[in-house]
Write a protein that binds this DNA or RNA. Sequence first.
DNA 1: GGTGATTTGTTGACATGCCAAACATAAACG
DNA 2: CGTTTATGTTTGGCATGTCAACAAATCACC
Lengths: 335, 335
Amino acid sequence: MIDPALPLGTNGDVVRRDNLSAILGRVHRSGGLSRSALTSATGLNRSTVGALVGELVERGLVTEGEPEPTRQRGRPSPQVLPNPGPVVIAINPELDAVTFALVGLGARVERRWRREVDHPIGPDETVAIIVETLRQLETELVARRILGIGVAVPGIVQADEGLVRWAPHLGWTDVPLAALITRETGIEAHVGNDASLGAVAEHLFGAGRGVDDLVYLNGGASGIGGGVIVAGRPLGGRSGYAGEFGHNRPGSSDPTDRLSTSGALEDEANRSRLLRAAGLTVADEPTLRAELTATASPTVRAELARQRRVLAAAIANAINVLNPAVVLLGGFLAT
Amino acid sequence: MIDPALPLGTNGDVVRRDNLSAILGRVHRSGGLSRSALTSATGLNRSTVGALVGELVERGLVTEGEPEPTRQRGRPSPQVLPNPGPVVIAINPELDAVTFALVGLGARVERRWRREVDHPIGPDETVAIIVETLRQLETELVARRILGIGVAVPGIVQADEGLVRWAPHLGWTDVPLAALITRETGIEAHVGNDASLGAVAEHLFGAGRGVDDLVYLNGGASGIGGGVIVAGRPLGGRSGYAGEFGHNRPGSSDPTDRLSTSGALEDEANRSRLLRAAGLTVADEPTLRAELTATASPTVRAELARQRRVLAAAIANAINVLNPAVVLLGGFLAT
DNA sequence: GGTGATTTGTTGACATGCCAAACATAAACG
DNA sequence: CGTTTATGTTTGGCATGTCAACAAATCACC
């Protein structure tokens, strides 16, 4: 009883789940691969892989297809493909709209749509929109198997509890979002920080594929969010609040780099400062980008250079502490 | 073959090793606990725990002792104690001395001694000192079972390869230290960064006991080292270089807080600045501490306050990113 | 086109490790 | 001193992965 969080013992069931998960995970991430590839990738026995794949087929999670024509000798190995049936629903509530996506195994985005909103919406209204949207899709969804709902929230989230602690952008505080959604829809729901989930996505399917230690910084309209992958797993911290790079105060060699009183990264380097410097009021990302690359204005270029310096200092700090293999920038930071 | 670092499959052997390790780890960390406590802590079956403990007894790693008198009903459960026989040798090479310790299971430090050196020593000389010291202890050690050697190096270390990449303090570069030691002594050797290992120690036995997410900062004579525990495991980063807080440049609200050109934490907050402010040239930790607490000099107090601010900014950054449950300070930082 | 080499799926025997249940043991309670 | 309770011990059973032998499917070579 000294340390309840210490690793527990392992028993047979755990092994099976582990191996099923290893197989399914690989199929999901690769979008389909041969059984023999699975055998060598997992280090398991041929017969074991056969049994595991069989179980996944039975459960309707994968299908086996024709072997890919290969120029190799030997008996061809059938492709193990993600079953197109089961889907999850991905939801991203933002200030101006709620975005939905229907995602199948293999990370295939089947559909994607937005529900615009003309005013900031609270949790209840968000859940109502979700319920309504699902109802509209009922005929389509009834034939499918819905595995779950995942919500990416711009704010501080306690993922294991499904709790939105604080989403300043949306004006939410202490919302048990996962529980609310599950109650109204009957579907298992999970909640996460948008930037953390972005980091996971980049790690599994994006630019950080195959890299087990990465830092992901995403510049949104209202701030800078971050996600960290450590040893292939998302960095959560004590209660899942990790990755708040935006509130960091990076040191810079030039005091004039500092414009805000706080000195926090997201106060120094942000989109609205760029817009202001460029003389724009509102602009989507491509427009802003074009303006910034085209301009010859020394003011704009200076502001760009300043933000780059601040950002670089913040990233340098992160690299010192986390030693990631790559640092990925998203949103306006990419610009 | 998409991602070789992904989790492999699990088979029977892994389960057994895992469970033996779970039991031994708990006994080691607690210094001894009852079999029934092990059962509930691991979640394994009574009979399984019995078998596992039996195997560990057979291997000479634990012993079973008299049950502790308890006021409970029921058959008393025997204590599972670390076997005092096997030991590891802990080594910490520093600028002025090499420190050795003989540590048994249960983290009992049996002996500890220093070999002073009057000049900076290279890797070969260090290994020679180790060999010589072991030879002196031969009569004592021959009866014991030496499980391994662990070296805590002040510098950047690639732990999995046993490689010291860069130890500026010692002047070492790219030293395959573990291999050298193993070659000369025939004993399995492991190498790690001193601050990282310090973090692990605090996590398992010290102030961070029972806490799975912590940051440990250690102020030494020549800089600031850091170690991070994430989800109960040391944070390594891509190649084990993580935790270099000392090179971070924290932002501060007051530009006058910045004295060095680099702005790096260990250039701003360090021991020699404190010594200089206090008007001392050399002092051990207690002396310095006494001087600092006793003094009323405004210069000294200002310097203390300044270092505190810089340190606080650095820690705040770390908290934002890592969300640890605790931050531990060691060395002069504690002062 | 046929034959052999090669790779991989399939099947059944086997080993291993954990669990569950029945029993044994040792303490506290009344 | 019997009952209750907690826990060690033993036995049998079950799940799971491995191994070896065999079958199937492809390529290479003649």
